[in-house]
Write a protein that binds this DNA or RNA. Sequence first.
DNA 1: TACGATCAGGAAATCGGATTCCTAGTTTCC
DNA 2: GGAAACTAGGAATCCGATTTCCTGATCGTA
Lengths: 338, 338
Amino acid sequence: MDRGAVVRITDVAALAGVSPSTVSKALNDTGSLRESTRARVREAAERLGFVPDATARSLSARRSFTVGLLSTDSAGRFSLPVVLGAENALVGGELSALLATARHDPVREQHHVRALVARRVDGIIVTGRTTEPREPIRVPMPVVYAFAPSSDPDDASVVPDDAAGMRLLVEHLAGLGRRRIAYVGGRAEQAASLVRYETLATELAARGLELVGTPLYGDWSEQWGRRAVDLVLGGAVGSGLPVDGIVFASDQLARGGCDRLRELGVRVPVDVAVTGYDDWEVMSLASRPPLTTVDMQLERLGQRAAELLIAAIEGEPARGVERLTPRLVARASTLGDG
Amino acid sequence: MDRGAVVRITDVAALAGVSPSTVSKALNDTGSLRESTRARVREAAERLGFVPDATARSLSARRSFTVGLLSTDSAGRFSLPVVLGAENALVGGELSALLATARHDPVREQHHVRALVARRVDGIIVTGRTTEPREPIRVPMPVVYAFAPSSDPDDASVVPDDAAGMRLLVEHLAGLGRRRIAYVGGRAEQAASLVRYETLATELAARGLELVGTPLYGDWSEQWGRRAVDLVLGGAVGSGLPVDGIVFASDQLARGGCDRLRELGVRVPVDVAVTGYDDWEVMSLASRPPLTTVDMQLERLGQRAAELLIAAIEGEPARGVERLTPRLVARASTLGDG
DNA sequence: TACGATCAGGAAATCGGATTCCTAGTTTCC
DNA sequence: GGAAACTAGGAATCCGATTTCCTGATCGTA
């Protein structure tokens, strides 16, 4: 913290014995200068530890080289990886990330939006906690919505492809010979619960497999996962089990489910195969057995959002919803110890 | 996204029929202007949706009204709440937060530091993944270290007071009549494991309570928590248990411990009371029974770091390590169902 | 040798506000 | 009624880098 040590371009110019404009040209490889001059300027800048003031640069460039990461959420389990992925990708484009978390408060969100506009960010990435579509924000710069898409189809959004994820799971279970599958969702009104169920139903039907019972909805807790297992089995034990597979809408549910199955003496996956969703490792790996699940690749999603935003900033805006194909992660809850 | 709609101060001036300097004075409540003039200007600004360019303002104010949040970590479980708490507190000071995650890569960190310096941030908050002291960064603006303190005692750092947390736990266990306590740590070389153990030993001794066995170290997984329970019990069952309490150094360990105890038919907390650490709710609440644990109040820690940084920016720097007292969260793993 | 073309580098304008300094009017007070 | 003290608001300067002009020097060629 060596205060007062702010070196300006004029300081470099003085040391190198040239004018400030020459320094600028030398360091930015523009204009026409003798190589010896450039070298002299570079050396002077180096020696003084000159770091050009980005504020001034922004002013004349009419670009801030900054993008806003607006998180509706307080950057929770889902939006956090998205934010990190985006931040990571932005670094490559020499862009900085302004973090703005709204915590579900529209007033805070509005305040943040104003602040981002005031800072003349080059663009904004908006993330949410759920995959529910959200109201778009109105700002005079490009915006990309990640995870939670914009309700305006003309906006650019990137979301995980839940249907594709579910298809991967069905394919996997079918390949393992499972034929009677039950579904346990989270909160009934949420897109994640519903889309996953609908895709499951469609895919099972397409393969002539049985969807056992009606979809069960509760919340997203392990506790509900445990209770749901009781509902699925309906008191049956031993060889009279009504299912040979349970698809849970999240790892948390699946982990609870596994715990309950074990308590009941039902072997996973020998008697019943179990799948989760999210690949939240603290759940999926800690589960006994570890869960076969779907990785939505949220970091990649954030990265993709950043790419789209950069393209938009450079004049090539995208529109519509882009669905990112997730990745199946196969573990012991379907494969067994082998 | 209504492009080209960037309103400048001259536009407002023209509409209000005054000079740009008058607009500036009117909107910032400076200078001496007739109230009617101020009102006219305000109205014009309002109508045009004028948002002053923060870049330009920064340039002349020689302040960016921005602080850097430099996370060594990729903003994981510990640094994330700190970052959020800080961001939250900064909003109140009309400061924006630039997010910079280094992901344990010194090169990336250096790059981010340079970018923050280039942007002339007013200050930087540095967070880490562990409570291990870290090398300070060298920049020409105030810095506050949060969670991971600076190794230079002259720097300002804010850390959770682990010793105080442990004291709370011992007090709690002693109050419940527990007398024979075992300790299960995480990774042996980490401060969190060691400090907690040492404090536990000291506090138990001070109260004439027994510390059973040697401290057990492994990793931070649930699996290790389960295995450690076997080591603690050493095959004993029924009324011959060697302990009536186990202090785990994290919720994850404690949760694994509870699972194992239940499998062995040991009742928690009737036979053995269990405590965790961190109050990571997805663990502490999902555990059966829910965990008595210590909340380090990481958000408050981030908030406090922001306060110290703001004070430093305003010319009143702090120095030394400030320890934030954590909060005991008592739940069923020591209290029982009551 | 001379004249146009090319080149190196400097002077000045620019980005968009904030702030300092002035200058007309208007009050105030003796 | 005239000088001193305010007032309201505008003109000019500044923040620090980029960029556009522009000038003097060098080069090439007829």
